[in-house]
C-alpha cells in the first residue's frame, strides 16, 4: 500500500497530472467487453462510433481509434466502410501508414476465389 501511494505521489509530482491529450470515452471498457465476447462485433462498432463522435467534437481522437473502427467493419463484412476508416487513421497518424496502406491494399485487391469483388 505504501509503495502504491508513493508511486501515485511520484506520478502527480512528476507533472503527469495534466490535461489528457485525447478524449477516450469508454474505449478501454469497450475493448475489454469485446475481448470477452468476440461475437459482439456490432455492439463494439456501435460503442466505438459513439466514442469517435465524442472525440471528434473536441478534435481529440486518440491514436488507433479510427483503425479499430475500420477493423471491426472488416469483421462485420463492410469492406468499403473499413477502407474509409483506415484512410482516416492514415491521414491523421503518419506512423500508421505502413499498416493502413497494407490493409487498404488487401481490401481493394481482387479476390483469388470466384467471390465477386466489392466495388
Amino acid at each position: 500500500m505504501k509503495k502504491t501511494i508513493a508511486v501515485l505521489l511520484v506520478v502527480l509530482l512528476s507533472g503527469c497530472a495534466q490535461k489528457s491529450l485525447y478524449e477516450w470515452g469508454s474505449y478501454s471498457q469497450d475493448l475489454l467487453v469485446y475481448a470477452k465476447n468476440p461475437q459482439a462485433s456490432k455492439d463494439f462498432a456501435d460503442k466505438l462510433r459513439k466514442n469517435i463522435q465524442r472525440a471528434e467534437r473536441v478534435d481529440r481522437v486518440p491514436p488507433g481509434m479510427y483503425a479499430e473502427m475500420g477493423y471491426v467493419m472488416v469483421e462485420v463484412g463492410d469492406d468499403r466502410e473499413a477502407v474509409m476508416w483506415f484512410e482516416k487513421e492514415r491521414a491523421k497518424w503518419p506512423e500508421s501508414a505502413t499498416l493502413m496502406s497494407g490493409l487498404i491494399r488487401r481490401l481493394s485487391a481482387p479476390l483469388p476465389t470466384s467471390t465477386p469483388v466489392t466495388p
Binding site: 489528457s20 491529450l21 485525447y22 477516450w24 474505449y27 478501454s28 471498457q29 475493448l31 475489454l32 469485446y34 475481448a35 470477452k36 486518440p62 491514436p63 488507433g64 481509434m65 483503425a67 479499430e68 475500420g70 477493423y71 471491426v72 469483421e75 497518424w93 506512423e95 500508421s96 499498416l99
Partner: peptide
C-alpha cells in the same frame, strides 16, 4: 485481458502512436 486493454491509454497519453490492440491481436 485487463492488461492489454488498459495499456493503450497511458502509452498514447505519454505521447506515442499506439497501434490498435484489438486489430493487432487479430
Amino acid at each position: 485481458d485487463y492488461f492489454l486493454t488498459t495499456l493503450s491509454v497511458p502509452l498514447a497519453e505519454r505521447g506515442y502512436y499506439v497501434f490498435p490492440v484489438n486489430a493487432t491481436k487479430k
